[in-house]
Design a protein around this nucleic acid. Sequence first.
RNA 1: GUCCCGUUCGUCUAGCCUGGCCCAGGACACUGCCCUUUCACGGCAGCGACGGGGGUUCAAAUCCCCCACGGGACGCCA
Length: 480
Amino acid sequence: MPFDRVRVRLAPSPTGDPHVGTAYVALFNYVFAKKHGGDLILRIEDTDQVRSRASSEAMIMKSLRWLGLEWDEGPDVGGKFGPYRQSERKDVHQKHVDELLAKGAAYRCFCTSERLDEMRKAQREAGHQTGYDRHCRALPESEAMTKVSAKHPFVVRLKMPTDGTTVVDDVIRGKVEFDNARIDDQVLLKSDGFPTYHLANVVDDHLMQISHVIRAEEWVSSTPKHVVLYRAFGWEAPQFCHLPLLRNADKSKISKRKNPTSLAYYERAGVLPEAMVNFLGLMGWSFSDKEEVFTVPQMQQKFELKQIHLGGPIFDTTKLNWLNNQYLQKLDDERFVAYVREKMFSPDYLKKLRPFALERMDRMEQFVDRFAFFFNGALPYEGVELIPAGKTAPEVVTMLSELVEVLDEVYDWTDASLKEATDAFKTKIGWKPKDYFMTLRLVVTGRKDSPPLIESMTILGRETVRFRLRDVLNAPQLKS
RNA sequence: GUCCCGUUCGUCUAGCCUGGCCCAGGACACUGCCCUUUCACGGCAGCGACGGGGGUUCAAAUCCCCCACGGGACGCCA
């Protein structure tokens, strides 16, 4: 361990909704840090200029706080190792890339993406592992500099050793050996001047004095590159610990296509943060062979990285529901009332509903019944005519499944962009407006007499709409 | 395809390092019974797993080897 003090980091990339996988890794990092009296650092990995969004960063921080996983240093709380947003550390990264270049540990590559694509295609067809063919590695320095002055775009790649092995020492897995010859010359600096994950991660982890890198299993295969990087810089590598990947029911890596993965979804669904955290703590780890209900402070006492079971756990929320019920039963008056009044029937949410509600009621008592779908999760579809005349169940299923994909691409969840997206999709599939919109209305609201569809979808939010679009596929009418 | 990781009830897991206490323990789910004017909670019971094959050993879920299966990675994404 390169530093005396335990310092771990959480390094999410702000490219979407706050993910349960992020929370999972966050929990284990948090618990490990606290157990050892160390620090948790939140570092935003926003080096992907195309996909990073500020709104995503804000949501991730909000969700982590909701779970009670507070960080000691981060973009919002500061700290002496900042800045904590990688996009603000470009100079630092550039400087370190220059150092590698000067040392001869890295080289400039002028290959175009077209050439790389063709190369990979050929490799794949030949049945080989894909990887850079090191075309530019042998390029003389003088030639490279000429190209640079001629403004040829380039990336900087790591010079991997061509023989021997690199050993990754993982806290749980032990020593894992990799054949250097099979490891790619990783791009460290992109042509836009931003570092890739690999470079930024190693540099920042070292500069921020990270002692243990606790992250998901998907990183195991790139860790030897990181080890080589640490060596190139002359730094001692941190302890690595790769957590198992949460899985879908079919065992593939958890994805929003097959599971609700957004923490915002679970929060809205009325899952208590202590239940969520407890549930995540049960994935790959166990508190004891008798008790399964525990708090984060209790987990801290007993937690050991080495005890983590490596079989990838299926993220099956059945047990989460039971756990949540356990915690729900313990809610006192204060928390219960606060939840219903401030979260479920929050003033902000009710204000959004007011214009739609008032013109459709003659007595206030009708509100709860008629607007229930604004507060519910899953809707009852018994007796609802989900299939328009002339259409078949498979057609409706296909339409809805494709629509989910379309809506996933909607960048901001507003009336305008939803209208645009749903209209475009309607035109594409060529359904009659009435059939299309009524089906959608029934799926999203569960009733024919709902307020305007687009506005309702906007208010309900992305996660709930997505959930219903998927959930309705289980309705008997649509099963064939 | 190549490399790497994994594999205990349907699901989450204990046990595996330090072989015998394991004809494998707990929890969720499911089924039944009890409690109960309903439902839920709660209680009790039941169902249900060491991927396969070789070895080592007096003894293997536990150690070794092979196979199968699952997953991850193979991006100027993280």
